[in-house]
């Protein structure tokens, strides 16, 4: 397997950060960026840089005299907060903590988080496209272990799934890629179909499953030709991602 970096991603991240700092995003896009900022270090760094780039313009504003009651209101609210006990919710407190000994899970989680910026860029891009096609129930950006986005999976919830590769992937002769999802722990992983050629395709003969949910896991493994003999993923995991519902 070979995967190459798509140079657009870094560029789009910087552009998104700039547009956020400038105030050009609409309410929905702003909310998405603010969510992502809680756990996406690359995006946060880009926004921090963009903010500092333009901050001097704030200082060109001529100060005015605040209304007399303004400080009192703030002080009252701040005092309430302190009396509430240990408040000061921090971003770090909201982070997902994974058992330290579960390295595999941990590694994948970081990879998935690293892919969030990429998926956000894509999601904002998708939002801006006129919707002429039926919309997916959920969309997942599958990333490799390094967090590099590999494939977009759009599950339409009607046994059909669109797969859009984002990088070139070469599968060894005699092997094939297989797309899986995990509707729930009890059901276990279910095959959505084989990806014979790394090109945009619709897998339209999937199993009958409950409607796909946000955070549902999608993954691609390398299996022998014809697919996994056991009906469960057996080969190397190429990429994984958690689904989001398009807004």
């Amino acid at each position: 397997m070979t995967s190459t970096t798509t140079p657009m991603d870094g560029q789009n991240l910087l552009e998104l950060a700039d547009e956020y700092a400038l105030g050009l995003l609409d309410a929905q896009e702003r909310a998405q960026v603010e969510d992502a900022l809680l756990h996406d270090d690359d995006l946060r760094r880009a926004v921090d840089n963009a903010r500092d780039r333009f901050h001097e313009l704030d200082l060109t504003a001529e100060p005015v005299t605040p209304s007399p009651h303004l400080w009192e209101n703030i002080e009252t609210a701040a005092a309430e907060r302190v009396d509430d006990g240990p408040p000061l919710p921090s971003a770090s407190g909201a982070r997902t903590v994974t058992a330290a000994n579960d390295n595999a899970v941990r590694r994948w989680r970081w990879a998935a988080l690293a892919g969030i910026a990429a998926s956000l860029v894509l999601a904002v891009g998708l939002l801006r496209m006129p919707s002429t096609t039926p919309s997916a129930a959920v969309i997942a950006v599958l990333v490799d272990e390094a967090g590099e986005p590999l494939v977009i999976v759009e599950d339409f919830g009607d046994r059909s799934t669109r797969v859009t590769p984002l990088v070139d992937v070469t599968v060894p002769a005699g092997q094939t890629m297989q797309l899986w999802t995990l509707p729930d722990e009890e059901t276990g992983p279910v095959s959505l179909g084989l990806i014979e050629e790394p090109e945009t395709m619709i897998l339209d003969d999937g199993p009958q499953l409950p409607a796909p949910q946000a955070d549902q896991l999608y993954e691609i493994t390398i299996e022998q030709d014809g697919g996994s003999p056991t009906g469960r993923p057996t080969g190397e995991i190429l990429g994984k991602g958690f689904a989001k519902q398009p807004r």
Partner: peptide
């Protein structure tokens, strides 16, 4: 807006650190 922002600054001041760039900009 400034009133609400100051309350927010008070509550999430611990989210700022030197590696986030200028404190004033923040």
């Amino acid at each position: 807006v400034v009133q609400d922002a100051f309350i927010q600054i008070w509550r999430k001041a611990d989210q700022y650190s030197a590696d986030r760039g200028s404190a004033r900009g923040w």
